[in-house]
Design a protein around this nucleic acid. Sequence first.
DNA 1: AATGAATGAGCTTTCATTCAT
DNA 2: CATGAATGAAAGCTCATTCAT
Lengths: 225, 225, 225, 225
Amino acid sequence: MTADPNVDADSAPRRGRPKEAGLAERRRRQIVESAYVVFAERGYEATGISDLAAHAGVGQGTVYRYFASKREILDHVFDFSVERLFEAVDPETLASTPTSLAELVETIQLAANRAFALIEREPEFLRLILVEASAIDQELKDRVLGLEQLAANFLVKSLRRGIKSGFVRSDVDPQVFAHMILMLILPGLLQELRGEGSPENRERYIGAVVHIMMRGLCAPMTVSV
Amino acid sequence: MTADPNVDADSAPRRGRPKEAGLAERRRRQIVESAYVVFAERGYEATGISDLAAHAGVGQGTVYRYFASKREILDHVFDFSVERLFEAVDPETLASTPTSLAELVETIQLAANRAFALIEREPEFLRLILVEASAIDQELKDRVLGLEQLAANFLVKSLRRGIKSGFVRSDVDPQVFAHMILMLILPGLLQELRGEGSPENRERYIGAVVHIMMRGLCAPMTVSV
Amino acid sequence: MTADPNVDADSAPRRGRPKEAGLAERRRRQIVESAYVVFAERGYEATGISDLAAHAGVGQGTVYRYFASKREILDHVFDFSVERLFEAVDPETLASTPTSLAELVETIQLAANRAFALIEREPEFLRLILVEASAIDQELKDRVLGLEQLAANFLVKSLRRGIKSGFVRSDVDPQVFAHMILMLILPGLLQELRGEGSPENRERYIGAVVHIMMRGLCAPMTVSV
Amino acid sequence: MTADPNVDADSAPRRGRPKEAGLAERRRRQIVESAYVVFAERGYEATGISDLAAHAGVGQGTVYRYFASKREILDHVFDFSVERLFEAVDPETLASTPTSLAELVETIQLAANRAFALIEREPEFLRLILVEASAIDQELKDRVLGLEQLAANFLVKSLRRGIKSGFVRSDVDPQVFAHMILMLILPGLLQELRGEGSPENRERYIGAVVHIMMRGLCAPMTVSV
DNA sequence: AATGAATGAGCTTTCATTCAT
DNA sequence: CATGAATGAAAGCTCATTCAT
């Protein structure tokens, strides 16, 4: 076995089919994306591995080459969804510290608009995150709630800064309000789930959220600016 | 619902075998109540008909004498849940037409407190309605959303009256605000789902909802009463 | 109608199909006996639950109503086999304390004959116990070996008594010889496995075993010849 | 391609690509040896081709280039095992025609010791031959039994010679006794399977076998005692 | 009317085998 | 030649539903 008669002078003994780097990652992606669609479409429980495989255009066995179980796929689908949400909202580009209530509201408005844009493009996204994932088990439910918590934490920081800067009332509880602000966008989400989503409606809702945040419900004379 | 032994419009006294009128209805009730408990406890998919039958103290076959399928039972469980929610909130006793923002807010607060009281007594209720039911199929999802719509309609009427009476700003869109007000209680619900629910927390949230509704977030000087 | 048609006066409220006592045990037996046959015929691994169910004349689901897993069925099949072996050999009727080597040998001969009679009737029995069971896992292998140990223990006692009585050489190690005596019947068993079993052959072998034991175990003075 | 790439008996100096004649055979050997190890370790059924290939350091596909099926590999593993047993026992060096019972017994003892030495070195060997192989199908079972037959034939010849020479009783049935002598070593094997094997135990057993054989086989006059 | 034994379709998962590279 | 990615048949097992009693 001195001079290997079999291959190449160069050090790497290239035997067999070359391993095509990145294939594994591509396949995983392909399967997760298919799962994202079919889970959203028919629900996690109602989707069989065979459906999933068929949609991905691979055999059932191939699915198990890349994922240990159906449940694990759901995990990755959730990650994938979160990833997409982050890409869509792109928090980096939001993080300018607001110096007035108007600015703060504007930032929130921007984030909401971006999220809605994603949902408009892919309505199943919402169902997957909000409805499917929550129903599987405690772990995934925790992850959904954790996502909301994450967003809330951003807002908490902004509100605290607002209070320190004086443009947010000091008797506002940042923790509490952060969550509530997030909830204010839920009616819009529900509309989407209902399939009644439309740009005009979205406008109305976002406008109302701004209103409520800036003014509450109190009548004009009471406020008197 | 007084002394009617026989149901139905005809009052002909059924001799021979009174057939234990209402027995069927009692059985259905018994099964639905059991299903309510076990579905909430273990989830719809994870619950087998045998679990359900065992909990109800009847045979599996008996379940199918009263319901055509597992899915149909869920329908009835949902109805039953809604029924309980209505009993708890008891909208009849809320419907006094408010004549001031404070009164309106107080009414909402009362309704919210009643709903929370139910959830505190039976936390699984929330899970069933919000999480389990939504994940089954479109029809049930629609029903969940319909429930929200129902509550919103109440609020819409109140807001319209408020606008007419002048204690609600006229630029408030009743439809939109109604939904949003409902959403404001969601953070509290999420806390319950997370198992972090506590009376103090609930107080904080409800207080904040009142605040936001009455004042918005604007700083005190801006408001100037 | 005074007597309630529904519930009856006697204490036991007999509702539904009567539970047919002993059915469960009968079904278990039926399935185990089928398994005994098909496992022996095709081997444990090669037998599917569907084969087993088909042979038993029941649905697959029914199998799982009575056994938790395929493996558990094998356990019971093993028990069943041991049970049959015991019935066939009927050790109770063997246990007369022998007072001479001839008597001891006769007893052993009788036991061997009975075992062979079973195997002749049901050759698959042997395969199941000796070959199939051993190959599944450590636990079953231990049980097979334990069975041999059990038989050996009987012999050890007899040999000890024989030594004390003087009709077995005192330099015989009871533990060791007990196992060996058992092994002496193995060539006969192997013949059966080979399908070459015949009464004449069995005679030859048992005769030879007697020969070897009489010569090997006899107390020194007795041998003389 | 002028140069036959395929090896074969012809000795024409293969220019260009000698094709590493015997490479195929080496590969086969490598795979079989790996299979020997992993089959013995985890069992035939429990071993996947991937395990096997990994242990052999080749791809799964390569395995199928050299063997048509998993089953065929087992065949070769069995051959390999027999081969090892023969190497260990080395019958050539045993075949000196014994001229006395003591010599015969000594020869058998030597063979047994060699076989035990192998088993002590590689306990899995026993499991493979005795337990795994037997359970697969009739063909392999036959081969296991054939192995015993082979050893028995050796003994038959020796016994016949012994009878002719007069140092073995003439009423000994060579066929029958040959098998029995082989069986006498089984308790020792079982101990190994049980994991209770130890040199002392082995001594005891072999001693007892010698004892029983000397007494059982010896010609009448010799015994006297 | 009530029962629970029986069923079988369908589930997730495994793995011997094939084949493009 | 060698490879390991891909495959799909088939496994064990579950459970909503049916039905004899």
